[in-house]
Design a binder for these strands. Structure first.
Lengths: 141, 141
DNA sequence: CTCATTTCAGTGTTACTGACATAC
DNA sequence: CGTATGTCAGTATCACTGAAATGA
Protein backbone atom coordinates (compact mmCIF):
# COMPACT_ATOMS: atom_id res chain seq x y z
CA UNK A 1 0.00 0.00 0.00
CA UNK A 2 0.98 3.58 -0.53
CA UNK A 3 3.33 5.22 1.93
CA UNK A 4 1.40 8.47 1.63
CA UNK A 5 -1.74 6.81 2.85
CA UNK A 6 -0.80 3.74 4.81
CA UNK A 7 0.02 5.55 8.02
CA UNK A 8 -2.73 8.13 7.98
CA UNK A 9 -5.31 7.84 10.72
CA UNK A 10 -8.10 8.32 8.21
CA UNK A 11 -6.87 5.38 6.18
CA UNK A 12 -6.50 3.00 9.08
CA UNK A 13 -9.85 3.98 10.47
CA UNK A 14 -11.33 3.25 7.09
CA UNK A 15 -9.64 -0.15 6.87
CA UNK A 16 -10.65 -1.20 10.35
CA UNK A 17 -14.16 -0.04 9.68
CA UNK A 18 -14.27 -1.87 6.37
CA UNK A 19 -13.41 -5.14 8.03
CA UNK A 20 -15.85 -4.55 10.85
CA UNK A 21 -18.60 -3.46 8.52
CA UNK A 22 -18.07 -6.38 6.15
CA UNK A 23 -18.30 -8.85 9.02
CA UNK A 24 -21.42 -7.15 10.31
CA UNK A 25 -22.98 -7.05 6.90
CA UNK A 26 -22.33 -10.67 6.11
CA UNK A 27 -23.42 -11.96 9.47
CA UNK A 28 -26.70 -10.08 9.34
CA UNK A 29 -27.25 -11.10 5.75
CA UNK A 30 -26.66 -14.73 6.69
CA UNK A 31 -29.25 -14.25 9.43
CA UNK A 32 -31.68 -12.75 6.90
CA UNK A 33 -31.49 -9.22 8.23
CA UNK A 34 -29.69 -5.90 7.97
CA UNK A 35 -28.08 -3.48 10.40
CA UNK A 36 -30.87 -0.93 9.90
CA UNK A 37 -33.43 -3.53 10.86
CA UNK A 38 -31.57 -4.42 13.99
CA UNK A 39 -31.25 -0.80 15.01
CA UNK A 40 -34.94 -0.17 14.52
CA UNK A 41 -35.94 -3.27 16.45
CA UNK A 42 -33.58 -2.33 19.26
CA UNK A 43 -34.92 1.22 19.40
CA UNK A 44 -38.47 -0.09 19.50
CA UNK A 45 -37.75 -2.32 22.44
CA UNK A 46 -35.67 0.12 24.41
CA UNK A 47 -37.94 3.12 24.00
CA UNK A 48 -41.31 1.49 23.47
CA UNK A 49 -43.87 2.42 20.83
CA UNK A 50 -43.13 5.77 19.21
CA UNK A 51 -43.53 7.74 16.03
CA UNK A 52 -41.32 7.06 13.05
CA UNK A 53 -39.50 10.35 13.42
CA UNK A 54 -38.66 9.53 17.05
CA UNK A 55 -37.60 6.08 16.05
CA UNK A 56 -35.23 7.50 13.49
CA UNK A 57 -33.72 9.95 15.97
CA UNK A 58 -33.14 7.19 18.46
CA UNK A 59 -31.74 4.69 16.03
CA UNK A 60 -29.62 7.27 14.26
CA UNK A 61 -31.42 6.72 10.98
CA UNK A 62 -32.79 9.47 8.78
CA UNK A 63 -36.58 9.64 8.85
CA UNK A 64 -36.75 9.14 5.10
CA UNK A 65 -34.74 5.94 5.44
CA UNK A 66 -36.87 4.74 8.32
CA UNK A 67 -39.80 4.44 5.94
CA UNK A 68 -38.28 1.80 3.68
CA UNK A 69 -36.71 -0.29 6.44
CA UNK A 70 -39.85 -0.15 8.51
CA UNK A 71 -41.86 -1.29 5.51
CA UNK A 72 -39.75 -4.42 5.44
CA UNK A 73 -40.13 -5.01 9.16
CA UNK A 74 -43.88 -4.60 8.92
CA UNK A 75 -44.04 -6.89 5.93
CA UNK A 76 -42.28 -9.57 7.94
CA UNK A 77 -44.59 -8.96 10.90
CA UNK A 78 -41.83 -7.78 13.21
CA UNK A 79 -43.49 -4.40 13.72
CA UNK A 80 -46.88 -2.72 13.38
CA UNK A 81 -47.82 0.72 12.11
CA UNK A 82 -50.95 2.30 13.60
CA UNK A 83 -52.23 5.84 13.17
CA UNK A 84 -51.76 7.98 16.29
CA UNK A 85 -55.25 8.96 17.51
CA UNK A 86 -53.87 12.06 19.22
CA UNK A 87 -51.83 13.34 16.27
CA UNK A 88 -52.98 12.84 12.72
CA UNK A 89 -49.51 13.25 11.28
CA UNK A 90 -47.97 10.39 13.19
CA UNK A 91 -47.88 6.66 13.11
CA UNK A 92 -47.36 4.72 16.29
CA UNK A 93 -44.92 1.92 15.70
CA UNK A 94 -44.98 -1.17 17.87
CA UNK A 95 -42.88 -4.30 18.21
CA UNK A 96 -44.71 -7.59 17.71
CA UNK A 97 -43.98 -10.84 19.54
CA UNK A 98 -42.15 -11.99 16.48
CA UNK A 99 -40.23 -8.74 16.47
CA UNK A 100 -39.07 -9.42 20.02
CA UNK A 101 -37.95 -12.88 19.05
CA UNK A 102 -36.14 -11.57 15.99
CA UNK A 103 -34.34 -9.01 18.12
CA UNK A 104 -33.19 -11.69 20.55
CA UNK A 105 -31.93 -13.75 17.68
CA UNK A 106 -30.02 -10.85 16.20
CA UNK A 107 -28.55 -9.94 19.59
CA UNK A 108 -26.60 -13.16 19.46
CA UNK A 109 -25.47 -12.53 15.93
CA UNK A 110 -24.20 -9.10 16.92
CA UNK A 111 -22.38 -10.42 19.98
CA UNK A 112 -20.58 -12.94 17.80
CA UNK A 113 -19.46 -10.22 15.46
CA UNK A 114 -17.97 -8.16 18.28
CA UNK A 115 -15.84 -11.12 19.20
CA UNK A 116 -14.66 -11.57 15.66
CA UNK A 117 -13.94 -7.91 15.10
CA UNK A 118 -11.93 -7.59 18.30
CA UNK A 119 -10.20 -10.94 17.94
CA UNK A 120 -6.84 -9.43 16.93
CA UNK A 121 -6.64 -7.51 20.22
CA UNK A 122 -5.89 -8.50 23.80
CA UNK A 123 -8.34 -7.65 26.56
CA UNK A 124 -6.63 -4.45 27.71
CA UNK A 125 -6.20 -3.42 24.10
CA UNK A 126 -9.90 -3.79 23.50
CA UNK A 127 -10.76 -1.59 26.43
CA UNK A 128 -8.27 1.00 25.28
CA UNK A 129 -9.62 0.97 21.73
CA UNK A 130 -13.14 1.51 22.95
CA UNK A 131 -12.02 4.38 25.12
CA UNK A 132 -10.19 6.08 22.25
CA UNK A 133 -12.91 5.54 19.69
CA UNK A 134 -15.50 7.09 21.95
CA UNK A 135 -13.55 10.33 21.86
CA UNK A 136 -13.37 10.26 18.08
CA UNK A 137 -17.04 9.97 17.21
CA UNK A 138 -19.27 12.90 16.30
CA UNK A 139 -20.38 15.03 19.25
CA UNK A 140 -23.93 13.71 19.34
CA UNK A 141 -22.84 10.10 19.65
CA UNK B 1 -28.37 6.44 21.51
CA UNK B 2 -29.35 2.86 22.10
CA UNK B 3 -27.76 0.95 24.94
CA UNK B 4 -27.68 -2.16 22.81
CA UNK B 5 -25.53 -0.48 20.25
CA UNK B 6 -23.75 2.39 21.89
CA UNK B 7 -21.02 0.32 23.48
CA UNK B 8 -20.42 -2.12 20.66
CA UNK B 9 -17.03 -1.91 18.97
CA UNK B 10 -18.67 -2.10 15.55
CA UNK B 11 -20.82 0.91 16.33
CA UNK B 12 -18.02 3.06 17.68
CA UNK B 13 -15.78 2.16 14.80
CA UNK B 14 -18.56 3.17 12.47
CA UNK B 15 -19.12 6.50 14.23
CA UNK B 16 -15.43 7.37 14.34
CA UNK B 17 -15.12 6.42 10.71
CA UNK B 18 -18.18 8.45 9.79
CA UNK B 19 -16.69 11.56 11.31
CA UNK B 20 -13.30 10.92 9.73
CA UNK B 21 -14.82 10.14 6.37
CA UNK B 22 -17.10 13.17 6.41
CA UNK B 23 -14.18 15.47 7.18
CA UNK B 24 -12.12 13.86 4.42
CA UNK B 25 -14.96 14.05 1.98
CA UNK B 26 -15.76 17.69 2.64
CA UNK B 27 -12.15 18.83 2.63
CA UNK B 28 -11.44 17.13 -0.69
CA UNK B 29 -14.69 18.41 -2.13
CA UNK B 30 -13.79 21.94 -1.07
CA UNK B 31 -10.47 21.42 -2.82
CA UNK B 32 -12.26 20.20 -5.95
CA UNK B 33 -11.19 16.59 -5.63
CA UNK B 34 -12.12 13.22 -4.22
CA UNK B 35 -10.37 10.56 -2.13
CA UNK B 36 -10.16 8.18 -5.11
CA UNK B 37 -8.42 10.86 -7.11
CA UNK B 38 -5.89 11.44 -4.41
CA UNK B 39 -5.14 7.76 -4.05
CA UNK B 40 -4.61 7.37 -7.77
CA UNK B 41 -2.35 10.40 -8.00
CA UNK B 42 -0.35 9.17 -5.02
CA UNK B 43 0.01 5.71 -6.52
CA UNK B 44 1.16 7.19 -9.81
CA UNK B 45 3.85 9.21 -8.14
CA UNK B 46 5.06 6.54 -5.76
CA UNK B 47 5.18 3.71 -8.26
CA UNK B 48 5.69 5.56 -11.53
CA UNK B 49 3.86 4.93 -14.78
CA UNK B 50 1.97 1.63 -14.75
CA UNK B 51 -1.05 -0.13 -16.16
CA UNK B 52 -4.49 0.62 -14.79
CA UNK B 53 -4.76 -2.79 -13.19
CA UNK B 54 -1.51 -2.23 -11.32
CA UNK B 55 -2.65 1.20 -10.33
CA UNK B 56 -5.81 -0.22 -8.88
CA UNK B 57 -3.95 -2.86 -6.91
CA UNK B 58 -1.62 -0.29 -5.47
CA UNK B 59 -4.24 2.26 -4.64
CA UNK B 60 -6.63 -0.34 -3.28
CA UNK B 61 -9.28 0.52 -5.86
CA UNK B 62 -11.13 -2.00 -7.97
CA UNK B 63 -10.06 -2.07 -11.64
CA UNK B 64 -13.54 -1.24 -12.76
CA UNK B 65 -13.62 1.83 -10.50
CA UNK B 66 -10.21 2.96 -11.67
CA UNK B 67 -11.65 3.57 -15.13
CA UNK B 68 -14.15 6.26 -14.12
CA UNK B 69 -11.85 8.07 -11.69
CA UNK B 70 -9.00 7.99 -14.14
CA UNK B 71 -11.27 9.43 -16.82
CA UNK B 72 -11.80 12.44 -14.61
CA UNK B 73 -8.10 12.84 -13.90
CA UNK B 74 -7.29 12.64 -17.60
CA UNK B 75 -10.02 15.10 -18.42
CA UNK B 76 -8.48 17.56 -16.00
CA UNK B 77 -5.00 16.90 -17.43
CA UNK B 78 -3.62 15.44 -14.22
CA UNK B 79 -2.80 12.12 -15.90
CA UNK B 80 -2.25 10.69 -19.35
CA UNK B 81 -3.33 7.37 -20.84
CA UNK B 82 -1.11 5.91 -23.56
CA UNK B 83 -1.30 2.48 -25.16
CA UNK B 84 1.48 0.16 -24.01
CA UNK B 85 3.58 -0.67 -27.10
CA UNK B 86 4.74 -3.94 -25.53
CA UNK B 87 1.28 -5.17 -24.47
CA UNK B 88 -1.78 -4.34 -26.51
CA UNK B 89 -4.16 -4.88 -23.64
CA UNK B 90 -2.63 -2.27 -21.40
CA UNK B 91 -2.61 1.44 -21.05
CA UNK B 92 0.37 3.14 -19.54
CA UNK B 93 -0.77 5.80 -17.15
CA UNK B 94 1.44 8.76 -16.39
CA UNK B 95 1.32 11.75 -14.09
CA UNK B 96 1.52 15.15 -15.76
CA UNK B 97 3.21 18.23 -14.33
CA UNK B 98 -0.22 19.47 -13.34
CA UNK B 99 -0.89 16.12 -11.74
CA UNK B 100 2.21 16.50 -9.58
CA UNK B 101 1.12 19.96 -8.54
CA UNK B 102 -2.37 18.72 -7.75
CA UNK B 103 -0.95 15.94 -5.61
CA UNK B 104 1.17 18.41 -3.64
CA UNK B 105 -1.84 20.57 -3.08
CA UNK B 106 -3.92 17.64 -1.87
CA UNK B 107 -1.11 16.46 0.40
CA UNK B 108 -1.64 19.56 2.46
CA UNK B 109 -5.37 19.08 2.52
CA UNK B 110 -4.93 15.53 3.77
CA UNK B 111 -2.45 16.57 6.46
CA UNK B 112 -4.94 19.10 7.75
CA UNK B 113 -7.62 16.48 7.97
CA UNK B 114 -5.45 14.17 10.05
CA UNK B 115 -5.01 16.95 12.57
CA UNK B 116 -8.73 17.57 12.71
CA UNK B 117 -9.62 13.91 13.00
CA UNK B 118 -7.16 13.28 15.80
CA UNK B 119 -7.83 16.56 17.58
CA UNK B 120 -9.84 14.93 20.41
CA UNK B 121 -6.84 12.80 21.41
CA UNK B 122 -3.59 13.54 23.18
CA UNK B 123 -0.28 12.64 21.56
CA UNK B 124 0.19 9.29 23.32
CA UNK B 125 -3.44 8.46 22.65
CA UNK B 126 -2.94 9.05 18.96
CA UNK B 127 0.02 6.73 18.81
CA UNK B 128 -1.93 4.09 20.70
CA UNK B 129 -4.93 4.41 18.43
CA UNK B 130 -2.78 3.96 15.35
CA UNK B 131 -1.17 0.90 16.85
CA UNK B 132 -4.51 -0.69 17.67
CA UNK B 133 -6.18 0.15 14.37
CA UNK B 134 -3.33 -1.43 12.45
CA UNK B 135 -4.16 -4.72 14.07
CA UNK B 136 -7.80 -4.43 13.18
CA UNK B 137 -7.56 -3.91 9.43
CA UNK B 138 -7.94 -6.68 6.85
CA UNK B 139 -4.92 -8.92 6.46
CA UNK B 140 -3.76 -7.42 3.17
CA UNK B 141 -3.63 -3.89 4.52
C1' DC C 1 -7.16 -22.60 -24.15
C1' DT C 2 -6.27 -19.95 -20.38
C1' DC C 3 -5.38 -15.82 -18.35
C1' DA C 4 -5.00 -10.64 -17.96
C1' DT C 5 -6.58 -6.03 -19.14
C1' DT C 6 -9.82 -2.43 -20.09
C1' DT C 7 -14.37 -1.09 -20.08
C1' DC C 8 -19.33 -0.81 -19.23
C1' DA C 9 -23.39 -1.71 -16.77
C1' DG C 10 -25.33 -2.66 -12.67
C1' DT C 11 -26.04 -3.88 -7.39
C1' DG C 12 -26.26 -2.76 -2.42
C1' DT C 13 -25.59 -0.16 1.91
C1' DT C 14 -25.13 4.04 4.34
C1' DA C 15 -26.18 8.66 4.64
C1' DC C 16 -28.07 12.55 2.95
C1' DT C 17 -31.09 16.25 0.24
C1' DG C 18 -35.19 18.18 -1.54
C1' DA C 19 -39.85 18.23 -2.14
C1' DC C 20 -44.67 17.42 -1.21
C1' DA C 21 -49.06 16.92 1.25
C1' DT C 22 -50.84 16.76 5.59
C1' DA C 23 -51.69 18.15 10.17
C1' DC C 24 -50.29 20.31 14.50
C1' DC D 1 -48.31 31.42 10.04
C1' DG D 2 -44.31 28.32 11.09
C1' DT D 3 -43.15 23.68 12.32
C1' DA D 4 -43.36 18.51 12.39
C1' DT D 5 -44.47 14.15 10.12
C1' DG D 6 -44.59 10.60 6.70
C1' DT D 7 -43.46 9.62 2.12
C1' DC D 8 -41.14 9.52 -2.26
C1' DA D 9 -37.51 10.42 -5.45
C1' DG D 10 -32.99 11.15 -6.15
C1' DT D 11 -27.81 11.80 -5.15
C1' DA D 12 -23.02 10.39 -3.74
C1' DT D 13 -19.20 7.46 -2.22
C1' DC D 14 -17.39 3.04 -1.60
C1' DA D 15 -16.97 -1.60 -2.67
C1' DC D 16 -18.11 -5.08 -5.48
C1' DT D 17 -20.02 -8.34 -9.48
C1' DG D 18 -20.58 -9.84 -14.09
C1' DA D 19 -19.82 -9.69 -18.71
C1' DA D 20 -17.80 -8.46 -23.03
C1' DA D 21 -13.96 -7.50 -26.24
C1' DT D 22 -9.23 -7.63 -26.88
C1' DG D 23 -4.79 -9.50 -26.69
C1' DA D 24 -0.67 -12.07 -24.20
Amino acid sequence: MLDRIQHQATWMLGRAHLRSHTLLQQAFAAAGSKPYHYRLLAALEEYGATSQADLGRRAGIDRSDVVASLNELVERSFALREPDPTDGRRNIVRLTKQGHAELKRLDKVLADIQVQVLAPLSEPERAMLVRLLKKLGPEDA
